[in-house]
Design a protein around this nucleic acid. Structure first.
Lengths: 203, 203
DNA sequence: GTATTTCGTTCACATAGGTTAAGAAAATCG
DNA sequence: CGATTTTCTTAACCTATGTGAACGAAATAC
């Protein structure tokens, strides 16, 4: 199947939007083709583990449809979710991806999910050949950094109940798509505690 | 004072090292002069608040000597430290810096501190004119992102005692320079709790 | 160098969230 | 569709950390 054919499906247009919205600038067709030629489609069913701790993670995933979550497993075997990602967002074990070391995180689909993935080598080549992608990934990760820092601060300053209310307010659409026990895990509490909190919030 | 004079003092050489180590590449003199011409020295005594919540924060600081910390103040007036920065590191309210909105964080010196600061406008101009700085800031913030994500995960999976031990192991040099109550705040606990933990760790 | 403020420690008590267990509700499977 | 598994809720009890207060030690100011 030709690249042209490929681009009709698989959500390459969504990718172009994501890039242009992020850098607040149109990219030209050469640049667009350059990145498309390096990103391959991947389709996974619900509940598939696609990033695994202890394995090299040399690609990052752009979601064109579906939902997934990234998590860490602690010594007791408990999962701790630190990211939800849906269409038009990126997900990966960036520690492994950028450092080249063995991965430390896991990620799994929550729904049937379509991705476009890029390998580290291709990512680096792309940035070398087209500075616009250094720009794009700089801004992408700047935004991610700012959001993450905000979460870290709030996880230290707010009660679990307040974090839950903030989650409801900020991402109500995720409530429909994500099981409660993962939301609890994302908030840093146990499912039983989230149940308790929800009961209190109603009062 | 000429730029040449300026560069002899104020730690511009430290900045060049920081850039070259980060991108793993030498920059040429033109590029170096370009960034130097946009970064101004700033010198502050100990215990000076230099970033303030509610004010626009349109510059980021590179530390050439000294130490500072960034913090949030919660509804009860309690400070929550989320970053320590010493020489050869950057500090700023990146939320305000990148978004142009009013700042949400604070930062204060812990020691007499020397900075080089760059304004957002100059930062943007620099990245437009020299793609190498898109590259530099991309990698700088990539590294910061990965470290921050690790901290977020650990803050959810580890006990305060384990976080303290990890802090000791990873940054023993900070123990000498930073008061205990700030370390407690960084670990997400109260000074009294850190005292208790230290006593237990000895056993 | 003394006075004053800030910092670190200890303790007794309070509380948010964890733990364990059980049952109800919902989703998935055959 | 009914059977099975997974998810959500409730409740009783437990534990890590917070709270408030007191005191000595250290740092800072005068």
């Amino acid at each position: 199947m030709s690249l042209e054919m490929n681009m009709k499906n698989h959500g390459y247009a969504i990718l172009r939007n994501n890039i242009e919205n992020t850098i607040n600038l149109k990219i030209n067709d050469e640049e667009f083709h350059a990145i498309c030629s390096k990103m391959s489609p991947k389709i996974l069913k619900k509940n598939k583990l696609f990033i695994q701790e202890g394995q090299y993670s040399d690609e990052v995933h752009f979601i064109t449809k579906g939902a997934c979550y990234a998590f860490d497993v602690d010594d007791k075997g408990d999962k701790h979710t630190f990211q939800f990602s849906i269409e038009e967002h990126w997900i990966g074990d960036l520690y492994s991806f950028f450092s080249g070391n063995l991965g430390i995180y896991n990620a799994e689909t929550i729904e049937d999910t379509n991705f476009l993935v890029i390998k580290r080598k291709d990512f680096e080549k792309l940035c070398d050949d087209y500075p616009i992608f250094d720009r794009f990934f700089r801004i992408l990760i700047q935004n991610a950094f700012v959001a993450l820092q905000y979460r870290l601060v709030k996880s230290q300053t707010e009660s679990a109940a307040d974090r839950y209310k903030a989650f409801l307010k900020k991402t109500p659409h995720l409530l429909q798509r994500i099981p409660q026990y993962l939301i609890a895990s994302y908030l840093g509490i146990k499912p039983q505690s989230l149940s308790r909190i929800k009961k209190d919030v109603l009062k």
